[in-house]
Amino acid sequence: MKKIFKYFLNAIPRPLLIKLSYFVRPLFALYYKGNTYEDPIDGKKFRSFLPYGYENPRENVLSPSTLSLERHRLLWLYLKNETNFFSDHLKVLHFAPEQSFYDRFKKLSNIDYTTTDLNSPLADVKADICDLPFENDSFDVILCNHVLEHIPDDTKAMQELFRTLKPGGWGVLQIPQDLKRAKTFEDDSITDKKERAKIFGQYDHVRIYGLDYFDKLRAVGFKVEEVNYSENLTEKEIDTYRLASAEIIPVVRKHQ
């Protein structure tokens, strides 16, 4: 089963994969049902999670029911326990909406929910993150997770996120990050897809972010909080929810 899953993960274009996943998720959830691990997003329990990754797949990380990864489950816990996302009336912009969140966020009566992306079939608005069709100060909350590493001009994208966020608003701008690396690494001369996947973690990534990512966000005007939310959890919770214990959640705010 795991070998079959890895094959389809790598062979099927992502937009089609998203559509097909709605049919296969119930089968995965039934097949992997158990009591060892739990997805906090829907509360379902499994004997194991699925592998995920392109070049070197990570084992036991993809939830069979919500298709959430470590970062999604960590973010869900943070939003639920530490923010007003599920309680206050908020106008929310969500880039490249993840399946694990999309249906649940659309059903929330307290948020005015807009999704955007160039390619995702889940996007309400087809838009370039570097040239957004929204007015200044439009949104109370912006979620932009694992998008900026795909964008050649990430500074322009950050400026657009800052422009469209309301004064006093907040956002989560997650990226894959090497916390042992001080400076972000980019090399446009690497064009071979396999080589890019090997070096950057995925063929369509254009950089590996280092610790200077937070300063890049501050340079465009954001106030940045580097949240290590897993510090609030026990080792048992981290293992049960299959979280990455060292992941930092970049929470940004725009001054009023």
Rank of each mutant, 00 (worst) to 15 (best):
Y54F: 15
E55A: 14
N56W: 03
N60W: 00
L62F: 14
L62G: 01
S65Q: 07
S65F: 10
T66V: 08
L67F: 14
L67Y: 14
L67W: 11
S68G: 15
L69K: 10
L69E: 06
L69P: 10
E70T: 12
H72A: 11
R73W: 05
R73L: 10
R73C: 11
R73K: 15
L75P: 14
W76S: 11
W76R: 09
W76P: 13
Y78D: 04
T83M: 04
T83I: 07
F86G: 14
H89I: 01
H89E: 13
H89P: 03
L90M: 12
L93C: 09
F95N: 10
A96N: 14
A96T: 13
D103A: 14
K107T: 08
N110V: 13
I111K: 04
D112L: 12
D112P: 11
Y113D: 07
Y113H: 09
T114P: 06
T116E: 01
D117V: 04
D117A: 11
L118F: 08
S120G: 12
P121S: 09
A123Y: 05
D124V: 12
D124K: 13
D128P: 04
I129W: 06
I129L: 02
D131G: 07
D131A: 15
D131H: 13
D131W: 00
L132W: 02
F134C: 05
F134A: 10
E135G: 13
N136H: 10
D137H: 14
D137A: 15
S138H: 01
S138C: 07
V141Y: 10
V141N: 11
C144V: 06
C144G: 02
N145R: 06
H146M: 00
H146C: 00
H146F: 05
H150N: 12
I151P: 01
I151N: 01
I151A: 04
D154A: 01
T155P: 05
K156P: 04
A157S: 10
A157F: 02
Q159R: 14
Q159W: 00
E160F: 04
E160N: 04
